[in-house]
Structures are given as C-alpha cells and as structure tokens.
Nucleic acid binder design. Structure first.
Lengths: 218, 218
DNA sequence: ATCTAATGTTCTAATTTAGTTCTTTATATA
DNA sequence: TATATAAAGAACTAAATTAGAACATTAGAT
C-alpha cells in the first residue's frame, strides 16, 4: 500500500488541513518529515496522487486535497516510525482487534475490524500484528484461557509446533498447534477433552502465528 | 486545499453572512484582511471559486455564496483527541520488574528492583503496580505458566478468591489464590500436584493482587 | 434618460512565496 | 562492484500577495 514516508506525509497533510483549514506548503511538509530538500516531497506527492490518496492542482500553491486515508495503519509502518522517533521511550502501538476466535469449536472467521488495542511496541516488533479474543477452552493446557487476548503476527506459513491461527475452508478460524503430516495438516488442541483435527493442507490457510498473550483480571 | 489568505477570506465571508445575513463588499473584505487594495480580494475570490468553495454572480454586488467550508475539527475535539491519544496510545508507564516469584516453591522474596517494564497505561489504572516473572507451574491450571510476566497491583489485603502475592514469614513470596479461614489463610495453588498451604494469618502478608498477565512466545 | 454612489473588474508592476526540474551525493541492495 | 533508490541542493518557473489606479456595472435617485 504505502511506504512509511508516504503514509507519514499523507497523515501530515490530512491533519494539517483538518486543524488549520489550509494545505501545507512543500516547505512545511519538508520540515514535518525532517527533510532538508523539498524535491523528495514532490516524489512522495506524485506517488500519493498515483495511488489515489491525493488530488492536486498542478502549479497551484497549497492546492492538495485528500481523497481518502488508508483503512488501517499498517502496524509495521507505525512500529518503524515509532522506533525511529521514540527509540526506547516505551511507546505503544495500536493494532486492530478482530473479534473473537474460538479456541474450542471454530465460530467466526477473521473478518471485520472491530476495535483497537494498544500494546507496548516491544511486543510487536518486526512484522504486522493483530489481536484476537479467545473464546473457549481448547487451548487451556497451553495457558490460553477463555477471554484472553492473543496477539498474532501475520504470516502465511507456520513451523511444526507453532501455535497459529488457521482458517479452515475459508470460513472457520481457530487457534491451534500446527503440525504437518504429509499432505495433511493437524490442528492440535491443548485440551485432552478435544480431539486433533486432520485436514488436507489445501483446506487450511495459516493466518498468523501466536506472538504474545495478554490477560486482564477483574 | 487552501492558502492561509484564501482560508481567512472564506471564513470572513462565511462569518459575515451568518452574522449579518448579507455578503461583505470587496472593501469590507479588504479591510478585514488588512489590505490596502481590493484587487487582491478579487484574486482570492477567483481562487475560492475555482476550488468550489464559493459561487459568485459576476458584476453583482455582494453576491457571493459559500458552497462549503473546509472540514475543520473544532479545536476542542482536537484537544480531546490528543488527550486520548496520549492516554491510550502514546503513554506507557514504567513499572518495576522485581525478579522472579515462585509459582511453585517460593524461592525469592520481593526485594531489589532489578528491571523496568513498560506497559500501556490502560493496563495499570488506579493504583501502584509492579511486575513479576513467574517461575514454576503451581498456577498452571489458572493459565499462569512458567516464564509469564504478571502485573500486580500493590495491596495489603485480598478478597477471598483473589490471586495474590503473599509474603510468608517475611522471606518467601508466592502467587496463589487466597482464602481466609478463620484466623488462618489458605494459599491455594492451581495445580492438583501441589497442596494447599494453611498458615496463620500473622505469618502471611499480602503484597498485591494479580492484575494482568503478559506472555511472549518465541 | 441621466446622474451618482456604491461596488465590482481589470491592468500593471513589484515582491514574496511556492512548485518544478535537474544534477549531484549518499545510501542501500543485489 | 554495479544498480537502484532516496535525499540534498540549486536553479528555474510559476503562483500568490500586495498595491495603485483606471475603468465598468449596477441600482436607485433625479
């Protein structure tokens, strides 16, 4: 979608227009991004125009219009920005919280973004992350309880033994230990009351790897 | 979008029409912007017409119509948003991470501050908090695993059923479910391989209540 | 119809501000 | 090393702002 610079510039333009009613000049944008030359701004704006985020009136001053904003902030971009800007200050990053995921019987595919979750930056370094609420007790012996929030690192594949979000038949999402067995994939619960499911690999899509877990009491 | 002058003029026109019911003349606009010539007003109005903020009837006096205004956020809303951002997004709080606490056999009293942990502000609202590393498996059935980090809210007392940090004989710290039984206190593990300890209340000091838990994989 | 006061329009010109383009330099990547 | 990319810097072009004055149009009064 957007590079970190493009994203940052688009946000600066949008914010400036919203707060002041005026479009920033190239120089102001240059300063906002910490550049020393405005030629770079030109390239970024061209890229944003090409991607239909901005409209411009060529050769007019302060004549940019924001057409749209990216739907979600790629956490990788934010993480990168914050890393640079706030270094070790202990920032948090907002990641999408996609509803619930069954740790028992799968009930809900990962679909619409519903909420946001703030997590410390150091929990989500190097990748794109999202959060899920655990429902059910199929992973209880791994210490993953009903109501826990898990943070998932987006990924298409999992290693044997990883606990991962698996999408079955494009409709059921579940969190299980993954094991490959020939052309099959085993979805292994951590609860002796549940049984391992064996599925042809083509019916299972890995959506991410369990990265961390947050639980709140009371 | 607009240049500062264009914005200022548009706002003046809009405000004047709203307050007086009629459109300002070029001279009034000239004065409002502190100019000495009204030719500049003409240019500004042309620009606003071109950008679809104004409509005009040529050669008619006081015949401007405001088509739209830049979508400004009221500054109060901006301020509020910033507060939220800082409260929810930006701010983390540094809490002390006191070494390890045995969830099995107590081994180490809460003593020297060794490290810091950054946690989102919303996880530690209303109280004083500190963090501990879990060692052992006596709370495994509560989903508290060896290596987990728990965040504890400092407290001197616990309610029946709370999971709390208990200091026994001023030297052993342990995390257990607390139950009062007459003048005794029960320290109840969440692991059937461990046994509940019954201790006289005076030997047990509550040091805090389990507030949240963080686990990192890999 | 003519006059007039108020108002809008146009032009030139100077100054400041802003956008564009190109070359060079630095940095990263393969 | 070769290549691609990002940034810096400078030169150039264009637009915005401002001023001053002349001119045009409108609406109303005479």
């Amino acid at each position: 979608m957007l590079t970190p610079k493009q994203y940052k510039l688009l946000m600066f333009i949008s914010k400036t227009i919203k707060e002041t009613g005026c479009c920033p000049s190239f120089d102001e944008m240059k300063n906002a991004l910490g550049l020393k030359s405005k030629s770079g701004i030109h390239a970024l704006i061209d890229a944003l125009v090409e991607r239909n985020f901005l409209r411009k009136m060529p050769h007019k001053a302060r004549a940019l219009e924001v057409l749209r904003l990216p739907k979600l902030k790629p956490s990788s971009i934010i993480a990168e920005e914050k890393l640079k800007e706030e270094a070790l200050l202990g920032a948090t990053v907002e990641i999408p919280l996609y509803g619930k995921i069954a740790a028992g019987t799968p009930i809900e595919a990962i679909a619409n973004e519903t909420d946001k979750l703030n997590v410390p930056l150091n929990m989500i370094r190097g990748g794109e992350f999202y959060a899920l609420k655990i429902e059910g007790d199929s992973m209880i012996e791994a210490g993953i309880m009903d109501g826990d929030t898990v943070i998932i690192k987006r990924a298409n594949t999992a290693q044997n033994g990883d606990i991962a979000v698996a999408l079955v038949d494009d409709c059921e999402a579940t969190l299980k230990k993954i094991k490959k067995d020939g052309s099959d994939i085993l979805l292994i619960p951590y609860n002796k009351d549940y049984e391992t499911r064996r599925l042809p690999a083509k019916r299972v899509k890995i959506q991410g790897i369990l990265s961390s877990l947050i639980r709140t009491y009371h």
